[in-house]
Design a protein around this nucleic acid. Structure first.
Ligand SMILES: [Mn+2]
Ligand SMILES: [Mn+2]
Ligand SMILES: [Mn+2]
Ligand SMILES: [Mn+2]
Lengths: 221, 221
DNA sequence: TAGTAAAGTTAAGCATACTTAAATTATTTA
DNA sequence: TAAATAATTTAAGTATGCTTAACTTTACTA
């Protein structure tokens, strides 16, 4: 059985794998989960024994299909809860992540399927992240670029934001950045990696942290 | 801080206190929580050190206001979740208790207050149990009698059922017993403590277990 | 390529929440 | 009231999931 801790480890390994490649190092995972390397080594052995991951000493952790299944299951619960909180209960998009972090572990498949149906089988969560369906398949293909790598002079649409920093998201709301918003890259400043963007005709300077947490897609028009 | 285990202990102590009187014995609590007496003694010491209960060796456990506060808080969450599952997601009343047992521990006060508002501040859960408000006060007075103590020939209304046995509740649905249903006590059989009742013009024999899990109020008409 | 720094693992220990088995206290009952 | 029985507590041990400190392996650098 996967405990709450194991569910969180598998979810983190799965998500980091998509960002950082095939094998995840102990310290990357330790940093992500805010625990010591020792805790990771310990848990990696347990997850490996249960067939959730492949773990070779000093060579990092690789998620296996059995572990991926649990990770996607938790991700589905997390994202559906986030959308439910925003859509049905009127939460701000910056306030849902922590609630979902807790709810995802005490939600049966039956319950999440009913909420999924209640929300009419949504494709994405309030931050633009894709929601896996009952079978674990994503309903939309995400095809976007991190803002830091976008090009000067082009117009983009906001497709996704990282949802872990509540303050960051509140700030985005304040300067009117939301999902599907049209923005234009005005300039990129190399000395501090900030980017000047135009939003609703107003120029804003976005810090390095900000541009590394926003994903865009080039506008068609 | 109160862990999930402590929340469950305090909730059980609180509810048993209302049934069994002021002090709860170790074995009554052990039976209710399906753990050994040793586990109860152990936890009773911890809860006592934290000021949630008063515990005197061999003399049982008494809940204190600090513990009662947590118990009522969890009860509020439990009952609001149960109602939400039935009202909003279309669950049967027999299928909500176990879901709520899990959800109640991972629900912030903010979240439950929003669901409470979404449900328009309900007074009772799907089984007729009163829902405490934000301040911990009950919105209705429960004034009912256990069916086993009702009188032959009188008409009653169903006010409440115990919600722990899913099969029992499914059976009640089957014979059309639901909240606010009008029923008449036809006969009480002393040899097996069963009761014959009339429901929708049809007579049913209800076993001892059943009549100890249904609460009634005498009809006015 | 040896030496050092960084990364990762192992060992020992702690808190929580249980268990079984032994010891103790309380309650019956003869 | 003394022995038997029942209820309860204490002791010792287990699993989980962490910690710090010590040790080992790998990577980098001169
Ligand atoms: Mn999230
Ligand atoms: Mn999200
Ligand atoms: Mn219940
Ligand atoms: Mn109930």
């Amino acid at each position: 059985m996967a405990t709450i801790s194991k569910e969180n480890y598998l979810k983190a390994i799965y998500l980091l794998t998509r960002e950082n490649g095939n094998r995840i190092s102990t310290s990357v995972l330790a940093n992500d989960l805010c625990v010591t390397n020792a805790a990771i080594s310990d848990m990696a052995n347990k997850l490996s024994k249960q067939g959730f991951v492949e773990y070779k000493k000093y060579k990092g952790i690789k998620i296996l299909s059995k572990g991926k299944k649990i990770a996607v299951d938790i991700l589905r619960k997390h994202r559906i809860w986030e959308l439910f909180l925003v859509e049905t209960l009127g939460y701000d998009w910056g306030d849902v992540h922590l609630e979902a972090e807790k709810l995802e572990h005490c939600t049966t498949n039956n319950l999440i399927d009913r909420i999924d149906e209640y929300l009419n089988f949504p494709a994405a969560d309030p931050h633009g992240a894709p929601i896996p369906n009952k079978e674990g398949n994503y309903r939309i293909q995400t095809d976007d670029t991190i803002m830091s790598e976008c090009e000067i002079g082009k117009n983009y649409t906001v497709t996704r934001v990282n949802d872990r920093n509540s303050d960051l998201m509140n700030y985005l709301s304040q300067i009117k950045i939301s999902l599907n918003k049209e923005i234009k890259i005005i300039d990129k400043l190399n000395f501090d990696n900030s980017i000047i963007v135009e939003i609703d005709g107003i120029n804003h300077s976005l810090s390095e942290i900000l541009v590394n947490n926003i994903y865009l897609k080039e506008s068609k028009k």
